[in-house]
């Protein structure tokens, strides 16, 4: 990743990171309410029987490295939806 990643670049990086952790998931990442803000939706059977906390933790864990530090490319996730279908 370059020093100044584009928004589309960050979205793709987030998507690949989530897919790596949850293979086969249907992942959509879009812009949120400002620079570095994103909205994420993940559909996967893996969330079956998991609480909202466990489901979100799984997704956030996959992209946590992109949210670390003050100059992180991902500043905030405005909305994270996890569904099983």
């Amino acid at each position: 990743m370059s020093d100044h990643p584009t928004i589309a670049g960050i979205e793709n990086t987030m998507k690949s990171a989530i897919l790596e952790k949850i293979p086969g998931a249907e992942v959509s990442v879009g812009p949120g309410s400002g620079g570095g803000h994103f909205v994420v939706q993940v559909v996967s059977a893996v969330f079956e029987g998991k609480s909202m906390l466990e489901s979100q933790r799984l997704v956030l864990g996959a992209i946590a490295h992109l949210m670390k530090g003050d100059s992180a490319p991902v500043h905030a996730i405005d909305s994270l939806k996890t569904r099983t279908s």
Binding site: M52, L60, M67
Partner: peptide
């Protein structure tokens, strides 16, 4: 194990 702030704890348990 949660990368964002805020974080809420009730009775020592992380809620989200």
């Amino acid at each position: 194990s949660w990368p964002t702030i805020p974080q809420l704890y009730v009775d020592g348990e992380f809620l989200g």
